[in-house]
Computed example of a mutant assay.
Amino acid sequence: MLPAPYVKVYLVKNRKMVAKCKTHPARRTLDPLFQQVLQFQENFKGCQLHVTVWGDKKSFMGVVQIVLDDVDLSSTVMGWYKLFNECSLINLPNAKGGGGPGGSGHPGSHH
């Protein structure tokens, strides 16, 4: 059976989680399209987005780290990013009550 994936997005600064959001699950697919707005009220200068994709029963599907200073956020940003596997999870920020995302410094994930 195909998973119903969802995405957890963490705003991270200096290896500390500043804020987090998550999407609603997509339909059962291996090629999800999340057309949902996730907003952070916090200042994103000097921050990274750690994006993790999860399937049913909290099964890890992939992770990406996006350096926000490298992205022009003055308009809508759409793009494809490569997801990395669980062994890429290093330097985990402290995320109380649910673990934290990680990143290997590699750009990439599709959201």
Rank of each mutant, 00 (worst) to 15 (best):
L11G: 05
L11A: 06
V12R: 07
V12Q: 06
K13L: 10
K13E: 13
N14F: 07
N14R: 15
K16F: 05
V18M: 14
A19C: 03
A19D: 15
C21Y: 03
T23P: 09
H24G: 08
H24C: 05
P25S: 15
P25C: 07
A26H: 13
R27P: 00
R27A: 11
R28C: 05
T29R: 08
T29E: 04
L30G: 10
P32K: 02
L33T: 11
Q35V: 00
L38P: 09
Q39W: 00
F40W: 08
Q41V: 01
Q41N: 14
F44L: 04
F44E: 05
C47N: 08
Q48D: 12
Q48V: 01
Q48T: 11
Q48N: 12
L49I: 09
H50K: 13
H50C: 02
T52V: 06
T52N: 15
W54H: 10
W54K: 13
G55R: 09
K57S: 12
V63A: 15
V64I: 05
V64C: 15
Q65I: 00
V67P: 00
L68C: 02
D69T: 01
V71G: 02
D72K: 11
S74Q: 10
S74E: 07
T76C: 01
M78E: 13
G79R: 12
G79V: 03
W80S: 11
W80C: 04
Y81L: 14
K82Q: 13
L83Q: 13
E86F: 12
E86H: 14
E86S: 15
S88E: 13
L89S: 09
L89V: 12
N91G: 12
N91C: 06
N94D: 13
N94T: 12
N94C: 03
A95Q: 09
A95P: 02
A95E: 08
K96F: 07
